[in-house]
C-alpha cells in the first residue's frame, strides 16, 4: 500500500500539478482568442530554459548555501515575467494580424511559432539533455514512511498558491471579470465596453506565466530537453479538453486526471505485469483526448464547444 502511494500516487499528483498549470493557459486562450495554441508546449519549454539560464546567473552571485531547488524558486518569478512578456510579443507580432481571419490560420501560425521557439532553445542551449542539478536526491525525513522529495513540496505548494491567486483574480478583480465575460461571449463583452485587447494581454500574461512555471517544474522533476515542449503539448491539450475548454477550474481537474491516468496506467491492476507497458504511458493521454473530442467535446464539466 505504501509502495503504491510512493511510486504511483505521489508522482501522479506532481505530474498533475504540472499539466494543470499548462492546461489553464491552453483553456483560457481557447476561450478568449478562440484557437488551439500549438506553441503552448514550447512556451513551457522556454520557461524551463529561462529558469536554467537564471540559475546560472544566480550561481555567479556571491550567495552561499543555497540549494538548487531554492535557486530555481528564486528564478521562477523572473522566468514567469519573461515568458509572459515573450507571449505578449509573439501575440502582437504573429497572432494579432489574424484576429479577424479564420481561426485555423492562427493554428498554423502557432504551429510555426512552436518550431521557432524550439529552434531558438536548441540554438542557445544545444540539443543535449540538461539538468538544474545532478546527484542523488534523498526524500525528506519528516514525511516518512512516505517518500516525498523536497521538490515535490515546492511544486505542490507553489501550484496551489498560483491557483488561489488565479481564482482571486478571476472572481474579485475587474480584469478577471472581464476575462470571464469575454470567454463567455466575446461580442457581448465588446459592446458592453470591455477593452478586449487588454483582456487578451492578460490572457497571455496568465497563460505564458503559468506555462513557464509548468515547464520549470517539469524540468525540476525530470530534465530539460528541447523537445520537452512537444512532449508536454498533447497531455496538456488532453487536460484542457477533459476539463472543458474555457474552464480554468476544469483544466486543473483535467490536469490532475491526465497526470493520474498516465502514472496509474502502469500499475499492475490485473495480474503481475503493468496494466499498460510504460512505453505506451503517454499514449493513454492521447487516446483519452481523442475519445473525449469525439464523444464529449464539451469536457467532463461542460465547457464550450466552438
Amino acid at each position: 500500500m505504501i509502495d503504491f502511494v510512493n511510486q504511483y500516487l505521489i508522482p501522479a499528483l506532481v505530474l498533475g500539478c504540472i499539466y494543470s498549470l499548462g492546461a489553464i493557459g491552453i483553456s483560457m486562450i481557447f476561450a478568449i482568442l478562440r484557437f488551439a495554441h500549438f506553441a503552448h508546449g514550447d512556451l513551457m519549454a522556454m520557461g524551463a530554459y529561462l529558469g536554467l539560464f537564471l540559475v546560472g546567473i544566480i550561481d555567479l552571485l556571491p550567495l552561499d548555501g543555497l540549494s538548487v531547488n531554492a535557486k530555481v524558486l528564486i528564478a521562477l518569478p523572473f522566468s514567469f515575467v519573461a515568458t509572459a512578456a515573450a507571449a505578449i510579443l509573439i501575440d502582437r507580432l504573429f497572432y494579432k494580424p489574424f484576429r479577424k481571419s479564420k481561426t485555423i490560420i492562427l493554428v498554423i501560425a502557432s504551429f510555426g511559432i512552436a518550431l521557432m521557439l524550439r529552434s531558438l532553445i536548441q540554438l542557445f542551449f544545444g540539443a543535449d539533455v540538461l539538468n538544474y542539478s545532478t546527484g542523488i536526491r534523498f526524500p525528506l525525513e519528516m514525511f516518512k514512511p512516505l517518500r516525498v522529495q523536497e521538490r515535490y513540496v515546492y511544486i505542490v505548494v507553489v501550484t496551489l498558491a498560483l491557483m488561489f491567486a488565479l481564482h482571486f483574480m478571476l472572481t474579485r478583480t475587474r480584469t478577471g471579470k472581464a476575462m470571464r465575460a469575454m470567454s463567455d461571449d466575446a461580442d457581448l463583452a465588446r459592446v458592453s465596453g470591455i477593452n478586449t485587447e487588454k483582456v487578451v494581454m492578460w490572457t497571455w500574461i496568465i497563460g505564458g506565466g503559468l506555462a513557464a512555471v509548468a515547464g520549470t517544474f517539469l524540468a525540476m522533476d525530470t530534465r530539460l530537453v528541447p523537445t520537452m515542449g512537444w512532449d508536454l503539448l498533447l497531455p496538456t491539450f488532453a487536460a484542457a479538453i477533459l476539463g472543458g475548454l474555457g474552464r480554468p477550474y476544469g483544466a486543473i481537474a483535467g490536469g490532475m486526471i491526465i497526470g493520474a491516468m498516465e502514472e496509474l496506467s502502469t500499475f499492475p491492476w490485473i495480474g503481475d505485469g503493468p496494466l499498460i507497458s510504460p512505453d505506451y504511458k503517454t499514449a493513454v493521454a492521447f487516446a483519452v483526448m481523442v475519445l473525449m473530442l469525439v464523444f464529449r467535446p464539451q469536457g467532463l464539466f461542460g465547457g464550450r464547444v466552438l
Binding site: 485555423i104 493554428v107 479538453i241 473530442l293 467535446p297 466552438l306
Partner: peptide, 14 residues
C-alpha cells in the same frame, strides 16, 4: 477544424 488538428496530432503520436 481545431479539434481535428489536435485529434490528428494525437493519433499520429500514438
Amino acid at each position: 477544424s481545431d479539434y481535428l488538428a489536435i485529434a490528428t496530432v494525437g493519433i499520429a503520436e500514438i
